[in-house]
Amino acid sequence: MQFPDELKPEINQIHSVRSDDKVIKTNSPELAKNNYGENFQLHLLEEYKIYVEMMDRNSARRGQINAFYTTLLSAILTLIFTSIEKSILPIDKLFLLLLSALLGIFLCFVWIININSYKQLSSLKFKVIHEMEKYLPYPCYAREWQILKEEKKNIQYWRLTQVEKYVPLILAVPYLFLLIYSLIQLFNRYFTKI
C-alpha cells in the first residue's frame, strides 16, 4: 500500500497498548494486540471513532483560523483607508500606514506559521489513523489515499495546504505596497529637505 510521503507509516514503530493500567511497549503490532486482551477490537474501534472526530474538529478549527485571519487582515485594510480618508485618528497618516503595514505583514507571517502547524498536526493524526486502521476490517483513509495516488494521472488534485498557503501571501501584497509607499514618503519627508 502506497501513501503520500508525509503520511507513510514508519517502519519498526513502537506500539503501545494499555493492559490493566499498564502501558505495554513493543515493536510488534500483533504482540501488542495479544497483550491487550479480549476487548482490544472494541476499545480500538471506540478510540478510532474519537480520533477521527478529533481529526474532523482539527480541520474545522483550521478553517475557522483561516476565516479569522482573512477577516482581520481585510478589516485592518478597511480601517486604514477609512481612518485616513476621514482623519479619525490623531496620528500622522504616514506613521499610521507604516504601523498598519508592519502589523499586516506580521499577521500574514503568523498565519503562515499556523497553516504549517495545522499541516503537521493533520499529517501526524493521519499517521495514527493509518496505524489504527491496520486492526480494523477496512482501512478507509488509507484506501482513499491509495485511490487518489492511482488516479493522480487523470485528475489534478491540490492539497488544501498547497492552496491555503498562498492566501496569506496574496493578502500580504497590499501591506507590502503600503510599507514601501510609507517608507518612501517618510524618507522624502525627512531626508530630502536637507
Rank of each mutant, 00 (worst) to 15 (best):
L102A: 11
L7Q: 07
P139L: 10
L45A: 05
E85V: 05
K165M: 07
K22Q: 10
E131S: 11
V167D: 02
E85F: 08
Y48N: 06
L96Y: 02
K8I: 14
N12K: 13
M1Q: 14
L103N: 05
A60K: 11
Y138N: 09
I194L: 09
I76M: 00
V167Y: 00
L124Y: 14
N34M: 07
S122N: 15
L31M: 15
I14W: 06
I129F: 05
F191C: 10
Q2M: 15
E38C: 04
R61I: 03
L99E: 05
I113L: 06
P139A: 15
L42F: 05
K86S: 02
N34E: 10
I113P: 03
N154M: 15
Y135P: 00
T161F: 06
L102G: 09
I50G: 15
I24G: 05
K25L: 06
L178Q: 00
E164Y: 04
Y138C: 09
A101F: 02
K149Y: 12
Q146Y: 11
E6T: 04
L31H: 11
E131M: 15
V167F: 03
I76D: 02
E150I: 14
Y69E: 05
K152I: 15
F191L: 13
Y181P: 03
S87F: 01
L99H: 02
P174M: 04
P9T: 11
A75N: 04
F126V: 12
P9R: 10
F126T: 06
N116T: 07
I105T: 04
F106D: 06
F40S: 08
R18K: 13
C108Y: 03
L89Q: 00
T70I: 04
G37Q: 06
V17G: 04
N66R: 07
I184L: 06
I147D: 12
Y181I: 02
L102K: 10
I24L: 10
A142D: 14
Y51R: 09
L160N: 09
E53L: 13
N12R: 15
E30Y: 12
P29S: 09
S123C: 07
V23I: 11
F177W: 00
L89K: 02
T78V: 07
E151Y: 15
R189C: 14
P29T: 05
L42H: 13
P139F: 10
I11Q: 11
E133T: 15
K134D: 02
D56H: 12
L45V: 03
L121G: 06
L136G: 07
P168S: 08
L44C: 09
K93P: 00
F68R: 02
R61F: 04
E85C: 01
K93Y: 01
N27Q: 12
I180C: 01
M54F: 15
R189T: 09
D56R: 12
K134C: 10
M54Q: 11
D21A: 13
